[in-house]
Amino acid sequence: MDDVSQLRRGAVELAVLRMLAEGELYGGALVDQLAGYESLATTRGTVYPMLSRLRAAGLVETTWHESPVGPPRRYYRLTDEGRAACERRSSAWRGLVADMNRITGGKEPTA
């Protein structure tokens, strides 16, 4: 695991929660939406285990919908607990970003 992976893990999870806060989605759609952001793009090998963890933690729940292609498809949506966690983490994230920008912003690394 490289040093950036640890930073990305929390960010991708929060991004998934935010996307689900907008409405229910299936796993493939989440992967596609994340792919629209260069720094958040990831594989389904990361997203699906993450969704499984979020479901085990009670932050998301699933429901089945008929699919135009193939068997029914599992959709994910936030639970009340997930919605609260999403707001809490979003707020913490904004604080972190503001502080980290003050620490890292505009300074060139010294040799």
Binding site: G27, G28, R44, Y48, S52, R55, G70, P71, R73, R74
Partner: peptide, 12 residues
């Protein structure tokens, strides 16, 4: 092979 979706396995 398109036979399953990655999240087809679950408690349900």
């Amino acid at each position: 092979l398109g036979l399953l979706r990655p999240d087809d396995i679950g408690p349900d």
